[in-house]
Design a protein around this nucleic acid. Structure first.
Length: 262
DNA sequence: ATGACGGTGTGGCACCGA
Protein backbone atom coordinates (compact mmCIF):
# COMPACT_ATOMS: atom_id res chain seq x y z
CA UNK A 1 0.00 0.00 0.00
CA UNK A 2 1.05 3.58 -0.62
CA UNK A 3 0.59 6.81 1.32
CA UNK A 4 1.37 10.21 -0.17
CA UNK A 5 1.55 13.77 1.13
CA UNK A 6 1.20 16.88 -1.00
CA UNK A 7 0.86 20.56 -0.22
CA UNK A 8 -1.24 21.65 -3.19
CA UNK A 9 -1.50 25.42 -2.43
CA UNK A 10 -5.24 25.81 -3.13
CA UNK A 11 -7.38 22.84 -4.05
CA UNK A 12 -9.69 25.16 -6.00
CA UNK A 13 -6.85 25.81 -8.44
CA UNK A 14 -5.19 22.38 -8.31
CA UNK A 15 -8.13 19.92 -8.24
CA UNK A 16 -7.66 18.84 -11.87
CA UNK A 17 -3.97 18.20 -11.21
CA UNK A 18 -4.69 16.23 -8.05
CA UNK A 19 -7.20 14.05 -9.89
CA UNK A 20 -4.78 13.52 -12.78
CA UNK A 21 -2.01 12.64 -10.37
CA UNK A 22 -4.24 10.14 -8.52
CA UNK A 23 -5.21 8.54 -11.84
CA UNK A 24 -1.52 8.05 -12.64
CA UNK A 25 -0.54 7.27 -9.03
CA UNK A 26 -3.43 5.38 -7.44
CA UNK A 27 -2.16 5.63 -3.87
CA UNK A 28 -4.28 4.27 -1.04
CA UNK A 29 -4.17 7.51 0.95
CA UNK A 30 -3.27 11.07 0.00
CA UNK A 31 -2.73 13.73 2.67
CA UNK A 32 -3.37 17.21 1.29
CA UNK A 33 -2.32 20.50 2.86
CA UNK A 34 -3.17 24.11 2.11
CA UNK A 35 -6.47 23.30 0.48
CA UNK A 36 -7.51 26.93 1.26
CA UNK A 37 -11.18 25.97 1.14
CA UNK A 38 -14.03 26.09 3.62
CA UNK A 39 -15.54 22.67 4.34
CA UNK A 40 -18.73 23.48 2.42
CA UNK A 41 -16.65 24.07 -0.72
CA UNK A 42 -14.76 20.78 -0.57
CA UNK A 43 -15.13 18.73 -3.80
CA UNK A 44 -16.11 15.39 -2.22
CA UNK A 45 -18.06 14.47 -5.38
CA UNK A 46 -15.07 14.84 -7.69
CA UNK A 47 -13.00 12.50 -5.51
CA UNK A 48 -15.86 10.04 -5.24
CA UNK A 49 -16.09 9.91 -9.05
CA UNK A 50 -12.37 9.12 -9.05
CA UNK A 51 -12.94 6.24 -6.63
CA UNK A 52 -11.85 7.96 -3.43
CA UNK A 53 -13.41 8.85 -0.10
CA UNK A 54 -12.50 12.16 1.48
CA UNK A 55 -12.57 13.90 4.85
CA UNK A 56 -11.54 17.49 5.26
CA UNK A 57 -10.78 20.17 7.81
CA UNK A 58 -10.87 23.40 5.90
CA UNK A 59 -11.01 27.12 6.40
CA UNK A 60 -11.39 30.07 4.08
CA UNK A 61 -8.27 31.53 2.40
CA UNK A 62 -5.54 29.88 4.47
CA UNK A 63 -4.43 26.46 5.69
CA UNK A 64 -6.86 23.54 5.49
CA UNK A 65 -6.07 19.81 5.28
CA UNK A 66 -7.77 16.72 3.90
CA UNK A 67 -7.39 12.95 3.64
CA UNK A 68 -8.25 11.26 0.34
CA UNK A 69 -8.51 7.49 0.74
CA UNK A 70 -9.50 4.39 -1.23
CA UNK A 71 -11.36 2.97 1.75
CA UNK A 72 -13.56 4.93 4.17
CA UNK A 73 -11.63 6.06 7.26
CA UNK A 74 -12.68 5.81 10.89
CA UNK A 75 -12.41 8.05 13.96
CA UNK A 76 -11.56 11.29 12.19
CA UNK A 77 -10.07 13.89 14.54
CA UNK A 78 -9.43 17.54 13.72
CA UNK A 79 -6.50 19.56 15.06
CA UNK A 80 -4.38 18.77 18.14
CA UNK A 81 -6.35 17.57 21.18
CA UNK A 82 -6.11 20.07 24.01
CA UNK A 83 -4.53 22.81 21.90
CA UNK A 84 -6.70 25.83 21.14
CA UNK A 85 -6.10 26.81 17.52
CA UNK A 86 -8.22 28.86 15.16
CA UNK A 87 -6.18 27.59 12.19
CA UNK A 88 -7.11 24.30 10.47
CA UNK A 89 -3.82 22.40 10.36
CA UNK A 90 -4.29 18.76 11.35
CA UNK A 91 -6.65 15.95 10.39
CA UNK A 92 -6.12 12.38 11.49
CA UNK A 93 -8.00 9.14 10.95
CA UNK A 94 -7.71 5.37 11.06
CA UNK A 95 -7.26 3.40 7.83
CA UNK A 96 -8.82 -0.04 8.33
CA UNK A 97 -6.54 -2.61 6.70
CA UNK A 98 -6.76 -6.38 6.65
CA UNK A 99 -3.18 -6.56 7.88
CA UNK A 100 -3.97 -4.33 10.85
CA UNK A 101 -5.33 -0.80 11.06
CA UNK A 102 -3.05 2.17 10.65
CA UNK A 103 -3.42 5.65 12.17
CA UNK A 104 -2.61 8.50 9.80
CA UNK A 105 -1.97 12.06 11.00
CA UNK A 106 -1.86 14.75 8.32
CA UNK A 107 -0.31 18.04 9.42
CA UNK A 108 0.25 21.43 7.86
CA UNK A 109 2.91 22.66 10.25
CA UNK A 110 3.23 26.37 11.04
CA UNK A 111 5.61 28.29 8.76
CA UNK A 112 6.83 30.71 11.43
CA UNK A 113 7.93 33.58 9.14
CA UNK A 114 11.18 34.42 10.98
CA UNK A 115 12.81 33.75 14.36
CA UNK A 116 11.75 36.35 16.91
CA UNK A 117 8.33 37.02 15.40
CA UNK A 118 4.94 36.23 16.93
CA UNK A 119 4.46 33.64 14.19
CA UNK A 120 7.66 31.89 15.21
CA UNK A 121 6.49 31.83 18.83
CA UNK A 122 3.22 30.28 17.63
CA UNK A 123 5.23 27.71 15.66
CA UNK A 124 7.17 26.69 18.78
CA UNK A 125 3.98 26.44 20.87
CA UNK A 126 2.30 24.43 18.09
CA UNK A 127 5.24 22.04 17.78
CA UNK A 128 5.36 21.51 21.54
CA UNK A 129 1.63 20.74 21.59
CA UNK A 130 1.98 18.39 18.63
CA UNK A 131 4.80 16.50 20.35
CA UNK A 132 2.81 15.93 23.54
CA UNK A 133 -0.26 14.86 21.60
CA UNK A 134 1.60 12.49 19.24
CA UNK A 135 3.30 10.89 22.26
CA UNK A 136 -0.14 9.98 23.63
CA UNK A 137 -1.45 8.96 20.20
CA UNK A 138 1.42 6.50 19.80
CA UNK A 139 0.39 4.76 23.03
CA UNK A 140 -3.10 4.21 21.57
CA UNK A 141 -2.00 3.70 17.95
CA UNK A 142 1.46 2.10 17.75
CA UNK A 143 1.02 1.71 13.98
CA UNK A 144 1.16 5.41 13.20
CA UNK A 145 2.14 7.56 10.23
CA UNK A 146 2.75 11.31 10.61
CA UNK A 147 2.76 12.95 7.20
CA UNK A 148 2.59 16.47 5.91
CA UNK A 149 4.25 19.77 5.23
CA UNK A 150 6.50 20.07 8.27
CA UNK A 151 8.03 23.41 7.34
CA UNK A 152 11.28 22.11 8.83
CA UNK A 153 14.52 21.31 7.00
CA UNK A 154 15.73 18.41 9.18
CA UNK A 155 19.43 18.48 8.24
CA UNK A 156 21.89 20.51 6.18
CA UNK A 157 21.69 17.97 3.34
CA UNK A 158 17.97 18.76 3.02
CA UNK A 159 18.67 22.35 1.95
CA UNK A 160 20.08 23.78 -1.29
CA UNK A 161 22.00 26.38 0.74
CA UNK A 162 22.58 25.19 4.31
CA UNK A 163 25.33 27.75 4.92
CA UNK A 164 23.61 30.81 3.51
CA UNK A 165 20.29 29.90 5.14
CA UNK A 166 21.72 28.76 8.48
CA UNK A 167 19.59 30.09 11.33
CA UNK A 168 16.86 31.40 9.03
CA UNK A 169 13.28 30.14 9.03
CA UNK A 170 12.90 26.38 8.46
CA UNK A 171 16.62 26.02 9.25
CA UNK A 172 16.87 27.07 12.93
CA UNK A 173 18.25 24.83 15.66
CA UNK A 174 14.96 25.20 17.56
CA UNK A 175 12.92 23.84 14.65
CA UNK A 176 15.37 21.00 14.08
CA UNK A 177 15.24 20.13 17.77
CA UNK A 178 11.47 19.81 17.49
CA UNK A 179 11.91 17.47 14.51
CA UNK A 180 14.39 15.36 16.49
CA UNK A 181 12.00 15.30 19.44
CA UNK A 182 9.34 13.77 17.18
CA UNK A 183 11.82 11.10 16.04
CA UNK A 184 12.69 10.41 19.67
CA UNK A 185 9.08 9.36 20.29
CA UNK A 186 9.73 6.32 18.10
CA UNK A 187 9.14 7.81 14.66
CA UNK A 188 11.38 7.44 11.61
CA UNK A 189 11.89 9.72 8.62
CA UNK A 190 10.91 7.20 5.94
CA UNK A 191 12.84 9.11 3.25
CA UNK A 192 16.08 8.42 5.11
CA UNK A 193 15.41 4.70 5.46
CA UNK A 194 16.56 4.39 1.83
CA UNK A 195 19.39 5.43 -0.44
CA UNK A 196 18.43 8.76 -1.99
CA UNK A 197 19.95 10.98 -4.65
CA UNK A 198 21.77 14.01 -3.26
CA UNK A 199 19.86 17.29 -3.42
CA UNK A 200 16.41 15.72 -3.34
CA UNK A 201 13.92 18.40 -2.33
CA UNK A 202 10.15 18.67 -2.02
CA UNK A 203 9.64 22.43 -2.33
CA UNK A 204 11.03 25.07 -4.69
CA UNK A 205 10.27 28.80 -4.62
CA UNK A 206 8.11 29.99 -7.51
CA UNK A 207 10.60 32.81 -8.07
CA UNK A 208 14.01 33.05 -9.69
CA UNK A 209 13.72 29.79 -11.65
CA UNK A 210 14.31 27.92 -8.40
CA UNK A 211 12.90 24.62 -9.67
CA UNK A 212 14.87 24.72 -12.91
CA UNK A 213 18.02 25.32 -10.84
CA UNK A 214 16.92 22.76 -8.20
CA UNK A 215 17.28 25.40 -5.49
CA UNK A 216 14.84 23.77 -3.08
CA UNK A 217 14.26 22.41 0.39
CA UNK A 218 13.07 19.06 1.74
CA UNK A 219 10.29 20.07 4.12
CA UNK A 220 7.54 17.55 3.31
CA UNK A 221 7.94 14.37 5.29
CA UNK A 222 6.37 11.01 6.10
CA UNK A 223 7.34 9.66 9.50
CA UNK A 224 6.54 6.04 10.36
CA UNK A 225 6.40 4.57 13.83
CA UNK A 226 8.84 1.86 14.90
CA UNK A 227 6.05 -0.71 14.49
CA UNK A 228 5.79 0.16 10.78
CA UNK A 229 9.44 0.85 10.02
CA UNK A 230 10.18 -2.71 8.92
CA UNK A 231 7.34 -2.59 6.41
CA UNK A 232 8.63 0.48 4.57
CA UNK A 233 9.87 -0.38 1.07
CA UNK A 234 10.39 3.01 -0.60
CA UNK A 235 9.94 6.76 -0.12
CA UNK A 236 10.19 8.95 -3.21
CA UNK A 237 9.61 12.56 -4.20
CA UNK A 238 7.61 12.84 -7.43
CA UNK A 239 8.97 15.92 -9.20
CA UNK A 240 6.69 15.49 -12.24
CA UNK A 241 3.77 17.67 -11.03
CA UNK A 242 6.19 20.53 -10.27
CA UNK A 243 7.02 20.63 -13.99
CA UNK A 244 3.40 21.01 -15.05
CA UNK A 245 1.62 24.18 -16.03
CA UNK A 246 0.42 26.14 -12.95
CA UNK A 247 2.12 23.85 -10.42
CA UNK A 248 2.03 23.84 -6.66
CA UNK A 249 5.37 24.94 -5.23
CA UNK A 250 5.54 21.54 -3.45
CA UNK A 251 5.95 18.06 -4.94
CA UNK A 252 4.21 14.95 -3.62
CA UNK A 253 6.14 12.49 -1.44
CA UNK A 254 5.12 8.83 -1.70
CA UNK A 255 5.71 6.08 0.85
CA UNK A 256 5.35 2.41 -0.05
CA UNK A 257 4.55 -0.03 2.77
CA UNK A 258 4.65 -3.81 2.43
CA UNK A 259 1.09 -4.63 3.43
CA UNK A 260 -2.23 -5.35 1.74
CA UNK A 261 -4.06 -2.24 0.61
CA UNK A 262 -7.37 -3.18 2.21
C1' DA B 1 18.48 44.84 2.22
C1' DT B 2 14.93 43.94 -1.09
C1' DG B 3 12.16 41.52 -4.40
C1' DA B 4 11.31 38.05 -7.39
C1' DC B 5 5.90 34.30 -7.93
C1' DG B 6 1.51 32.71 -7.00
C1' DG B 7 -2.90 32.36 -4.26
C1' DT B 8 -6.73 34.78 -1.75
C1' DG B 9 -9.83 38.51 -0.80
C1' DT B 10 -10.78 43.23 -1.16
C1' DG B 11 -11.23 46.74 -3.92
C1' DG B 12 -7.50 49.46 -7.29
C1' DC B 13 -3.72 46.75 -3.63
C1' DA B 14 -2.35 44.07 1.05
C1' DC B 15 -1.29 39.82 3.20
C1' DC B 16 0.76 35.35 3.25
C1' DG B 17 3.78 31.61 2.10
C1' DA B 18 8.96 29.25 2.77
Amino acid sequence: MQIATWNINSLAVRLPQVLAWLAANPVDALALQEIKLADDKFPHDAFELAGYHSVCFGQKTYNGVALITRQPVQDTVRNIAGFEDDQARVISATLPLSGGALRLINGYFVNGQAPGTDKFTYKMRWLTALHGWVREELKVHPRLVLAGDFNIVPEDRDSCDPTGLKGTILHTDEERMHFQNLLALGLNDSFRLFEQPENTFSWWDYRMLAFQKNRGLRIDHILVSDALKGLARACLVDRAPRKSKQPSDHAPVVLTLEMPAS
